[in-house]
Design a protein around this nucleic acid. Structure first.
Lengths: 151, 151
DNA sequence: TTAAGTGCAAATATTTTGCTGTCAC
DNA sequence: GTGACAGCAAAATATTTGCACTTAA
């Protein structure tokens, strides 16, 4: 039942071709941004970066493309515990789910892959008769650097 | 003018007194809504319900009170996997965290309390040296009624 | 008394939509 | 050629803020 880890850490673009989704210049720019991102980006940041690759990219195209990627399960939408307002963040979805931890003091985001998380999802499938498609575990708290003293 | 407050003053209100937070007529209405809610409400729904208890409650007071409750860890903010748009939902925070499962087909929200979830959080504390304060696990998928056939 | 809280209106985000022209296939 | 996709502008949502008045403690 777990997804085969066959996902080549290559191209979102390849996924598009494979699924017969039409490729455009603008989508290529947005996909490239998502592929090369080193941190979680919100829609405004994605727009800005995409426009550096293709100045014609419009805000609405970013939202439409994000929705498309989400529908196809190629990206995840995160809130990062709303540490910086009510916005949303996006990241490429790779083979394995990971936990996001947000430090309530310094704002640092840490990721953590855990077998127990996978087992927990299996338990949900079994005990709740619920077919798990996507999941998101976000934790707010204090990172090792910030938890000294009174925290 | 006293509120038509038939409910027993609940725990949220007691928490306010306990923490020395000033109580107002408007906050009492909002707290009462949160205390008696039987499902997850968004800000607009909370406003509407609170106004039925006290017609003077303003939208901004709702947002300000929700922020206050969140800061004090008395409510949780949820997205329910953004099944119905990009809005946010709120629920009272009770003793035990629970998992939210959202059916991608019928929209039903199910809750699940799991010991494994508690253990997972303990593992994060230990392995990541991260002090867990709040956590949120949301799962999107198909409930038992909706998973027949091709799902 | 007085600092905290409130409504109101306006300002900010954030996301979506209608329309018309364009482009990938 | 044609249906999907684009930009643009405006609408629809969602949330926050400045300010003068009110109120809980």
């Amino acid at each position: 039942m777990p997804l085969p880890q066959t996902e080549v850490p290559g191209r979102l673009q390849a996924q598009f071709t494979e699924r017969g989704i039409r490729m455009t210049q603008q989508r290529r720019a947005i996909l490239s941004v998502m592929e090369t991102a080193t941190k979680h980006l919100d829609a405004a940041q994605i727009l800005r970066k995409a426009q550096r690759l293709d100045s014609t990219v419009d805000r609405s195209t970013v939202y439409r493309t994000l929705r498309l990627l989400k529908r196809h399960g190629l990206i995840d939408e995160l809130d990062l515990m709303h540490i910086n307002g009510e916005g949303h963040y996006y990241e490429r979805r790779l083979g394995r789910d990971h936990i996001h931890m947000a430090c309530l003091r310094c704002g640092k985001i840490t990721e953590f892959v855990s077998n127990s998380f996978e087992k927990l999802k299996q338990q949900v499938e079994k005990d709740c008769h619920f077919r798990v498609v996507v999941s998101r575990l976000e934790i707010g708290g204090y990172c090792s650097e910030c938890r000294g003293g009174a925290q």
